[in-house]
Design a protein around this nucleic acid. Structure first.
Lengths: 364, 364
DNA sequence: AGCACTGGTTCGATTATTGGACCAGCGGGC
DNA sequence: GCCCGCTGGTCCAATAATCGAACCAGTGCT
C-alpha cells in the first residue's frame, strides 16, 4: 500500500504540468493561466499554485504581461534524480533525547516515507557549538539532503541556515529576526499559564527551573513566566529563575541555590522532564514532600511522567499531532511553496496532577 | 492533456482500494476503518466515503460490529507478488512502550529499509488476550507481511504462530516447547546476578517485584532470582515475589503487601523501569530512603533512569546491538534459511548505582 | 456485566478550492 | 497619443472537501 504522494489538486496539477513540460508539449510559452485553468478544469488560483511549484523548480519563468516562459529545455526532471532525503539535526544520540522528541521524529520518518522521502538523522554536539559554521558547512556538503530539520537548535545554528539559505525547517522556536519556518509548542503561554495556576492556588514565591543555555523556547518560557507574575493582582508575588544543564548535578546545584534562600519558593515550574525527574528525587532526598511542602509543575511532557507518584501536573502533547504539522510544513519547504507562513504555535493540554496544591499555612 | 477524472481524496482512495481488492490483498475482511484511516493518512470520514463507492460497486459488504467483508472472491492466489513488509506486534501504542523497546524497533525499521523491507507496526491489546486466534487470523489475513515480529508476546500468541506456521520471530523469550526463533536478554542470569549482588551486600530478605501476567522472560526472571537465593550459602536468606500490572496502582498495592509484612524485605529487584519509577516515588512517600532503608535494583534499563537520584543499579542494554541481532535473525526468517538456531541470549552489562548498599544494622 | 472492538452517524473547525474582482505591465490597433 | 485586450500578481469571500472528535449500536472476549 503506497500513498498517493501529493493529494491536493494543486500538486496533482504540478505533477501533470511537469510531465507535459518534460515531454516538450510546449515550447517558448505556456498557455496563459486563464486558458490552463479552463482546460485543466481548475480555478486560476489553483493553477497558479501548481505553476508556483514549477517556478520553484526553475522550469518556467513568469513574465508579467507576456506569460509563463519555458526556461529549462526539457531536463528530465532535475528534481527527480536528486536523492529525496531529509536530514534531521539532533545534539545527542536519539536514545538520550527525551522520548517525546524521539517519538515525533520517528513518526515524521514514517510519514515522509509515504511521501517518498527518507529521513536521515545526524547527531553531533559540534553542530550546536558557538560557531558551528565549519561543522555545518561540512555536513551539508557531505549530505545533499533536500531539506533540513533543526531540533533543539541554537541561535548560531539558525542564523547560519538563514545566511546559507539552505532549505530548512525549525522544530522549535526561532530567535528574533530569524525568518525560518518553524513550529513549536507555545512555551510562553504554557509558562504564563503555569504561573497563573500556582498564583491562584495561593503561592506567592514561584521559581522557574530553566535550561542554562537557553534555546528560543526557553527564553519564551521565561518571558511568559515573568509576565504572569508581574501582571498578577498580587504585588507580593515573586518569580525566581534558576538554571540547569539537563544533568543531575546541575539540577541539584540549581535546586540547592533556590531552597537555601531565606524565603525559598513554595512552587516550581521545571522545564525538562528529565530535570523534573531529578528534581522530584532530590526533593525526596531532602525530605521535602511534593506537593505538601512544595508544588511542582512540569513544563514538558513525556510518557514516563505517568509513572511518577504523585502524578506531575503538566502540559500534555500528542507527538502525532506535532509530527503531522511538521510534515505539512516540511512538504512546503520541499516543494518550495513560497507563501510559507509559520503556523500558530501548539498549545498543549493542561493536565492537573497530584504534584500541585495550595501552599502550607504559615508559609506565606 | 488528459484530465484526472476523480480528484477528491475520497475518489483517489476508492481507486487505490479497488486496486488492492482486485489484487487480492485482503481476504475475508478489510482492515477496520480506523486502521485504514491511519495507514492511508486520511480521516475516517474520507475513508468511509471511499468505501461507500466500493460498496456501491458490490465489492464489499459492511457488517455492523464486525467489519467490511470482501464479497467477491477475486484471485485465489494473491501471494505471488508479496510486498516486502514485516509486521511488528505490540500491545500498546508505541509511545507507551518503554523507550528502550521503541528505540530498537525504530532501529530495526531503519535497518530493514536498507534491506528493502518496510516495517509496519500493529498495536492492539486483543492480540494479547487469552484466546487471540480470531484477532490474529484476521490480522494476518488483512496484512500479508513476509514475516512477523512478536514483542512482549503471550504464550497463546506464540503457540498460535507455531500452529499457524506463519513466519515469525519472537523478540523475547519463548515458552517451553515453543520452537520459534527468538532473541532476548538473559533475564534468568540477570536476576540470578542481581540477587547475588544483594546477598553479597549482606541483604537476607530479598523480594522481586514482577509482572503479574508473566511473559516468558518474567518467568525466567523468577527462576533465576529464586535459584540464587536457594543456592546461596546463607540459609536464612528469603525470597519474596510480588506482582504488579505495570500501572501505578498495582505497583503501590504490591509494594504495600511487601512492606507491611512483619519482616519486610531490605532489598528489591524491580522488573520494569516504569515500575521502578513508581516504586522509587512510593518509597519516598512512605519516608523510606533509598538505599539506606531499602536497596533497589532495576532489572530493565531505560534512558530516563539516568536522571534518577540515586542512580539505579541496573543492567544496561544497547538497543543498537539488540536491533542488529534482530535484523540478522529476521533476514534468516525472511529467506527461510532452514537451520535457524536461536542464538545465545544477550547478557546486559551490570552497572552499580547509588540505589544499593549494605542493609542497615540491627535490621538483620 | 464489563470491556474493547466494529461500523454508522453527526458535529464543528479547518483547509483547499473556487470564482470573482482589481491591479500593473505589455503589445497592437485606433 | 489613446484605448483595448491580453498577460501575470494579488486579494477576498463563498463553497466544498476534509479532518478530528464525539457518540451510538452491534459483536465477541473475559
Amino acid at each position: 500500500m503506497t500513498l498517493i504522494p501529493h493529494r491536493t489538486v494543486a500538486s496533482q496539477l504540478a505533477v501533470q504540468l511537469r510531465g507535459e513540460l518534460t515531454k516538450g508539449t510546449w515550447r517558448g510559452w505556456l498557455p496563459s493561466e486563464r486558458v490552463l485553468s479552463r482546460t485543466l478544469q481548475a480555478s486560476r488560483n489553483t493553477v497558479r499554485a501548481a505553476l508556483e511549484q514549477l517556478k520553484a523548480d526553475g522550469l518556467i519563468e513568469p513574465v508579467r504581461g507576456l506569460g509563463n516562459r519555458v526556461v529549462g529545455a526539457m531536463h528530465p526532471a532535475p528534481t527527480h534524480d536528486q536523492a529525496k532525503t531529509v536530514g534531521v539535526l539532533i545534539p545527542e544520540p536519539i536514545g538520550r533525547l527525551r522520548p517525546l522528541i524521539a517519538l515525533w521524529i520517528d513518526e515524521l520518518k514514517d510519514l515522509l516515507i509515504e511521501e517518498g522521502y527518507r529521513l536521515r538523522i545526524h547527531e553531533g554536539r559540534h553542530y550546536y557549538q558557538a560557531n558551528p559554521a565549519r561543522a555545518l558547512e561540512r555536513l551539508i556538503g557531505q549530505h545533499p539532503h533536500s531539506a533540513w530539520v533543526l531540533t533543539l537548535s541554537s541561535e548560531a545554528m539558525q542564523r547560519w541556515f538563514v545566511r546559507r539559505g539552505a532549505p530548512c525547517l525549525v522544530a522549535g522556536s526561532t530567535y528574533p529576526e530569524v525568518t525560518l519556518p518553524h513550529y513549536d509548542l507555545d512555551y510562553r503561554a504554557i509558562c504564563r499559564h503555569a504561573a497563573g495556576v500556582l498564583l491562584r492556588l495561593g503561592h506567592r514565591r514561584l521559581a522557574l527551573l530553566n535550561r542554562e543555555s537557553r534555546r528560543a523556547g526557553d527564553v519564551d518560557s521565561e518571558r511568559g513566566f515573568l509576565e504572569a507574575v508581574r501582571h498578577s493582582t498580587h504585588p507580593d508575588a515573586t518569580a525566581d529563575i534558576a538554571y540547569h544543564r539537563d544533568d543531575v548535578e546541575s539540577v541539584a546545584r540549581a535546586l540547592r541555590s533556590l531552597l537555601d534562600r531565606k524565603n525559598p519558593p513554595t512552587a516550581l515550574v521545571v522545564s525538562n522532564s528529565y530535570a523534573y525527574l531529578s528534581t522530584a528525587c532530590l526533593l525526596a532526598q531532602r525530605g521535602r514532600r511534593v506537593p505538601q511542602d512544595i508544588s511542582l509543575i512540569s513544563r514538558d511532557d513525556d510518557p514516563f511522567l505517568g509513572s511518577l507518584v504523585p502524578a506531575p501536573t503538566r502540559y500534555r502533547v500528542d507527538p502525532h499531532t506535532f509530527a503531522k504539522k511538521m510534515l505539512g510544513l516540511l512538504l512546503q519547504v520541499l516543494k518550495r511553496t513560497p507563501a510559507l507562513r509559520s503556523p500558530a504555535l501548539l498549545l498543549p493540554k493542561f493536565t492537573a496532577g497530584g504534584s500541585t496544591c495550595a501552599p502550607a499555612r504559615g508559609e506565606d
